[in-house]
């Protein structure tokens, strides 16, 4: 349970980070809050040659409201966002989901973007990014690009980020005048979700996003559905997610949770 040997680079500019990533490629990993990566290193599930610590870069530690979006830098810790005074008004879904991320003792160090880079299928922040239709800002020494949430998550713990790219930040849209709901089921509060769901009322009807079941957080937009039509849509969605049995829960239990929580949340946002 000790990490393998690696070089440690304390970056002082974003240029340092990009240079390190360009030189080492797949052998370098960006270290932010360390709440996922350090556990992976301790278990030797990751064996990078170089760790690039980005937490002394003040420029990445900003939360900024820019027009209809909130831009969150790579160095923003989960506790920083939770303490941001405008959170409940600008990003109500994040305000609902963030207290479910880990524990107070890990939110104090873990970053929002780190959780997205780790891309655990059960994690709340990837689910929230997908539900809100946010964007991820990627930057390498050669170029900058923006990737939509739905294109960012490529599989279980896999993302569209290239080996030479830094997740510089994300942008989450500010959606006014709608209703959001979030709920998850885990063995204990703070554990990884067996099923996590986020719902929002949309102009056309309703959106439901589900984490913890498929390899990536997945969402559906529906018109305003009621009664058996809603049950049918939820049932089809629950099967499409391709739930599997694991040590925490059976596939059937996961489908049950998707149907039950999905219905509750949709009724909650549409009432």
């Amino acid at each position: 349970m000790k990490p393998p040997a690696f070089d440690y680079l304390r970056a002082e500019t974003v240029g340092d980070v990009l240079e390190g990533l360009a030189q080492e490629g797949g052998n370098a990993r960006v270290l932010a809050g360390g709440q996922s990566l350090m556990a992976m290193l301790n278990m030797r599930l990751a064996k990078p040659k170089l760790l690039i610590d980005i937490m002394r870069l003040e420029e990445l530690r900003k939360i900024e409201q820019k027009g209809d979006a909130v831009v969150i830098g790579a160095g923003v810790r989960q506790a920083d966002l939770l303490a941001w005074p405008d959170l409940a008004e600008a990003l109500p879904l994040v305000a609902l989901a963030l207290p479910w991320v880990g524990h107070m003792q890990t939110r104090s160090r873990g970053t929002i973007c780190g959780s997205l880079a780790h891309a655990d299928p059960s994690a709340e922040m990837p689910l929230t990014l997908v539900a809100l239709g946010g964007e991820v800002f990627l930057r390498s020494a050669k170029r900058r690009r923006r990737v939509l949430a739905k294109d960012f998550f490529a599989g279980m713990m896999l993302t569209a980020r290239g080996d030479d790219e830094l997740i510089e930040g994300i942008s989450l849209p500010v959606v006014k005048g709608t209703r959001f709901a979030f709920r998850e089921v885990a063995r204990r509060h703070g554990d990884f979700a067996i099923v996590a769901c986020a719902a929002m009322k949309t102009s056309a009807g309703v959106r439901l996003a589900v984490g913890g079941v498929a390899d990536v957080p997945t969402m559906r937009d529906w018109p305003r559905l009621e009664g058996s039509a809603l049950d049918d849509a939820l049932n089809a969605f629950a099967y499409e997610l391709g739930a599997r049995d694991d040590v925490h829960a059976t596939a059937r239990y996961r489908r049950d949770l998707v149907r039950m929580i999905g219905r509750d949340l949709i009724c909650e946002v549409l009432q």
Partner: peptide, 21 residues
């Protein structure tokens, strides 16, 4: 949580933190 300490006023798992950091 056994290794929890406070670093610069922040609760920290010392097993998920490098001395170099």
């Amino acid at each position: 949580g056994a290794c929890t300490i406070v670093v610069d006023g922040t609760l920290t798992r010392s097993c998920l933190t490098l001395a170099a950091q």
